[in-house]
Design a protein around this nucleic acid. Structure first.
Ligand code: MN
Ligand code: MN
Ligand code: ZN
Ligand code: ZN
Lengths: 142, 142
DNA sequence: TCAACAGTTTAGAATTGTTTTAATGTGAAC
DNA sequence: GTTCACATTAAAACAATTCTAAACTGTTGA
């Protein structure tokens, strides 16, 4: 039950050579039945610990950026410390749990579509996304 | 026509000593009639070029963080490169112009209030903000 | 089949934004 | 004025990310 040949094909279609490293990253990102959010650090840890593979950090960055450029990943900015990536590439909203630094999807059905009355002359809307920051009720929010 | 004594008072009320550096930063941030968005780099350039002052970078960071903590500034994350700050501390939404990297306010009257049907158990909503990315119509959006 | 080459990986260096350190300076209180 | 906690500073440290340049590898096509 390996998706490797499927990933090989997808990569070739995209003009990316199906290298060992890229196939491994495809497996980690696209085999799970549910989409998820991750940082580069998360991903390298999965590769190193769970898979006992060794892929250089530069390659992880290269690959993630290549996948993002092809539209297979989305980048999400929550705080300026680091980037989050999302294997759910549909337009959708997020909860951000400030206690755990965790992103949680909020589908479009769970938020009424945002009605924007203003527009910027000469500019086209590329995306509309809602970010809902949440935290434990009894929190010391300095 | 100087607001310095007002800023001095505000700082003292906040438990912050009204130092020369903080007063100068207050002037830059809070004297303009309109609120605005800036990065630390923007701010240091204003201080150095327009005002020919010299405030150490660490002090700029210290002061901005102190002002944020006191609620006089908001931090906005657009991309992970750098932080944006906002002298408009009310809850509001933003357009982000991908051509110019410019933030534009979108008041609550210009967006219908966001209706969220989902909630996260045990978590309280701290903020709900919409980010609308825009770009020139005829753009090469790789 | 295999030579050739463009694309890819890699370790490490460089860069950038930000934070920390530790020494020096200064506002406020007495 | 003296004192002390708070603040400023230059420089070092740090963390995320990007760049560099050399080695490697998938693919092409002779
Ligand atoms: Mn931050
Ligand atoms: Mn970025
Ligand atoms: Zn998501
Ligand atoms: Zn704003």
């Amino acid at each position: 039950m390996s998706n490797i040949s499927i990933y090989k094909e997808k990569l070739r279609e995209s003009g990316l050579r199906p290298t060992r490293q890229r196939l491994k990253i495809c497996e980690v990102l696209f085999t799970p039945e549910k989409t998820f959010h991750f940082t580069i650090n998360d991903l390298t840890k999965i590769i190193e610990n769970k898979l006992s593979e060794k892929i250089s950090l530069a390659t992880v960055y290269n690959t993630i950026h290549a996948f993002k450029k092809k539209g297979y990943l989305k980048e999400i900015s929550i705080n300026s410390d680091k980037s989050y990536f999302d294997t759910n590439v549909t337009e959708h909203h997020h909860f951000f749990d400030e206690d755990t630094n965790e992103l949680i999807d909020c589908s479009n059905e769970e938020i009424d579509s945002v009605n924007i009355k203003k527009n910027i002359t000469g500019k086209k809307i590329k995306s509309v996304e809602v970010l809902i920051k949440v935290a434990s009720d009894n929190q010391n929010q300095n």
